[in-house]
Structure formats: structure tokens, C-alpha cells
Design a protein around this nucleic acid. Structure first.
Lengths: 219, 219
DNA sequence: CAATAGCCTGCTCAATCGATTAGGTTGTGG
DNA sequence: CCACAACCTAATCGATTGAGCAGGCTATTG
């Protein structure tokens, strides 16, 4: 069905097609793909439009990536790499800090990232609404590790009474729902509330609000 | 650009094409359209597949609805009519109940509806990610009234101290994010947590959790 | 200098999309 | 019984989609 052998004739094909990065052209393609896939969904985004936004021609996408599906996977991978790197950098400066403070900062960092990269949850909600090969890839490669480390964090916090007695699975969907939705629906939010979901003030206020609810800091 | 006159030749065309309902065939088409639009997005859903799921042929969609866009609008309308009807029925039985209890039941009803009709938030998140004619229709016809009545509710509750001191706009996105996300991502939730997001137990537990956080009932 | 390999583009194809047309069937009022 | 309107279908249209092919440019290598 899906031969693992390269379908083109040049020898280095298998290496090039949809493997690593570090090429400015490939990066521009991935960024454009991420924007359009997340806004318009997999089917709604056309390869021609992605190419146009990246400033290249459409056949170049099939040169660098075997197929539209392959391009999608590469774009998703790069986004999650950025997420993991950002979170890791943040945690780096938190050695020795007490667990509760560390957890609060993790939540804030997650919300800030979701606000600056709404593509993350846009793509997740697009693909995970129905079972399919792309949801499978997304969950097994990227979402599950995130889920499990979050569950572990909540279990720790619950034992200390730092967080309400709510099953971790529910807390996970409350956090991943309450945190990013305002920014996922950025254009709607702007129209509806007049707030600018890109501004630091609004992002901070939202993180404050979620932390207040989650960690119960109101008399 | 878009003449309001019927483009077909029969006289009753303008009346039929995309006006009221009460016809079992039209209802089946709308239900199928809702399912597919919400799962696959506007572009991802094909009129042929909608027709197939409704048990009719594809040209029939263009007979009953002027265009795919028209069909989408009719499907969205029917969903929001159901939402308003459900909420109104619920509030009917709450005359004389104190405001806080009434508010809690409203929140629970909203979450229950979102769990049983995940199409609602699936479509909202699909269309409101980017500005466009469908977001415009959705917001101005259906979302804004919902938003404003929710804001009003939260302002009342905040005055009584029944809800944390959080700006209503943020509370709105926290509620509409934390409540439905678990059910919007139903297939992912099942795979990730092992919970069945269709079961009454899980729905109730999630409503409990959100109410606990929102109304602060934990010592 | 010649040759080769890596990027990239213009042109094109088969498949599939939403929409249209013409026609058939059913039921109702005169 | 006829005429007409409502409902539905088969066949098909032009447009757009993802993908493939052949070839051109540039720079590194021998």
C-alpha cells in the first residue's frame, strides 16, 4: 500500500522527502502550512495557497514533502517541538522552586504559549473531533505525553490539597479548554468583547483568571 | 452580486429554497449536514457525503437549498433553535428559585447540552478561528445574544460575590472552553482517558467539576 | 572546464468538487 | 380526466484539487 521506498529516481530522495529541517525555505513552508492548516482545516487548506504564502510554487511542496499528508505531519511536528522546547526552557529556571509555585508557572507558560501559538489547539480540535489517521498520529506522537505529564502534575497537587478534588482527566480538559479557547477564537473574541487577544495585558489577565480558579486564590 | 430573486424558474422557488422546515426529508438533510460540517469542517464536508448520510441524492440538496453555503446556514440555525428551546424549557421550571441556584443549573444545562450536541462548539471553533462570512453570520445571528446574556448573568453573580472577581469576558471563555472541550474532543478523550464522554456519569462529573471551580465550593 | 547533485519552476493530468439541466413520479384541485 | 405543482433523480458541466513529469538554474566537486 505505502511503499517505504522513495518514489522519485534520485538517490537522496528518501532522505530529503520530509525529514529534518534547518533550511530557510522548508521553514517558511512549514510556517505557512501551520497557519493555513490550523485556520482552514486539512481539507480547506490548499497546497497552492500554502505555497503562495510561503513565497514558492506549488510543486515545490511535493518536492520537499511526499504528499499533503506528509507536509501536515512535518508542520505538526515542528509545532510540538517548539512547544516542548519552550516549556523545557521555562522549567530550566525553576530548579529548587517549591512544587506549587512551579506548577502555577507551568500553567501560566502553557496559557501564554497557547495565546501566542493558537495553531496548536486549533489543529488539535480539528483533528481530534473524529477518529482518523491524523488524530491517531497527533495523539500517539504528541498529545499523550503531554496528557500524562499533566495528569501526574495534577495528582501531585491534589495530594497536597493545592487543587480542588477533581479527577485529573476532567482537570486536564478544563485546563486545555479554559486556557486556549479565548485565543483559538481570537477573531470572535475581538468582535465580541472588544479585547485584543494578542495583547500582553489580556493574556496575563486570562492566565490570572485561570490560575485563580484552578488554585483557588479567592476569599 | 447575489440577486435576491430566485434563480430557478418555478414561481414558488424563492419560498422553498432555504426557508422553513417541518419536512422529514429536510430534517434528515439538516441533521446529516450538521454532523458532517461539524466533524469535517465546511470545506471538508462534501455535499455528496451529506446526501448519502441523509439517504438522498446529491442534487436534492441544491433543490432544497440554494447552495452549500445556504445549507450550512440552515443547519446552524436549526442547531441554535434547539439550544435556545432546551435552555428556555429548563428555565421555565425555575421561576422563583434563588439566583445562585438558578445560575448553577443554567451552567449545568449548558454543559449537558454541549455534551449531547458537540456539533455546537465544533462548528463555532471551526468558523470563528478566522474572520470570514460564516463567522460573521454565526456571531451576529447566534453567538452574540448568547454572549451578552451570559455576561449579564456573571455580572450579577460577581456583585453578590458568588463568583470570583474575574472580568466577565474572561469568565465567558473559561466557561465555553472548560465546559464543552472534553466532549468536542470526544474521540480523543476516549482514547486518552478511557472515559466515555457520552455517558451520563462522565457528563455529570464534568459539570460538577466546572461548577466546583466556578462557584468555589471546595474548602 | 566539465560534470554532477540539489533546488526549483512551468506545464499538465486524473479525480473530485458544487452546481445545473432535463426529465420522471406522485398527489391534489378543477 | 386533465393540468399543474411539489418532490426527487440521472447525467453532466466547468472549476479546482493534489500530484507527476520534464527541464532549467546554480554551485560544488573532480
Amino acid at each position: 500500500m505505502a511503499p517505504s521506498i522513495a518514489k522519485r529516481d534520485s538517490p537522496a530522495e528518501a532522505d530529503r522527502a520530509s525529514r529534518p529541517s534547518a533550511d530557510p525555505t522548508r521553514d517558511r513552508i512549514l510556517d505557512a502550512a501551520l497557519d493555513l492548516f490550523s485556520e482552514r482545516s486539512f481539507d480547506g487548506a490548499t497546497t497552492r495557497e500554502i505555497a503562495q504564502r510561503a513565497g514558492v510554487t506549488q510543486p515545490l511542496l511535493n518536492y520537499h514533502y511526499r504528499s499533503k499528508d506528509d507536509l501536515w505531519r512535518a508542520a505538526v511536528d515542528s509545532l510540538f517541538v517548539t512547544l516542548r522546547q519552550t516549556m523545557a526552557d521555562r522549567l530550566e529556571g525553576l530548579r529548587g522552586v517549591d512544587p506549587l509555585t512551579s506548577a502555577k508557572l507551568r500553567v501560566r507558560e502553557f496559557i501564554t504559549f497557547s495565546a501566542r501559538n493558537p495553531q496548536l489547539h486549533r489543529i488539535i480540535t480539528q483533528e481530534c473531533k473524529s477518529d482518523g489517521p491524523r488524530m491517531d498520529y497527533l495523539v500517539e506522537h504528541h498529545v499523550r505525553p503531554l496528557y500524562e505529564s499533566t495528569i501526574e502534575l495534577f495528582e501531585h497537587l491534589a495530594r497536597d490539597g493545592a487543587v480542588p478534588p477533581i479527577a485529573p482527566a476532567h482537570l486536564y480538559y478544563i485546563l486545555t479548554g479554559a486556557g486556549p479557547t479565548m485565543f483559538v477564537l481570537g477573531p470572535e473574541c475581538e468582535r465580541l468583547t472588544g479585547l485584543d487577544p494578542h495583547s500582553d495585558e489580556v493574556i496575563t489577565a486570562h492566565a490570572d483568571a485561570v490560575c485563580m480558579l484552578l488554585f483557588g486564590e479567592w476569599p
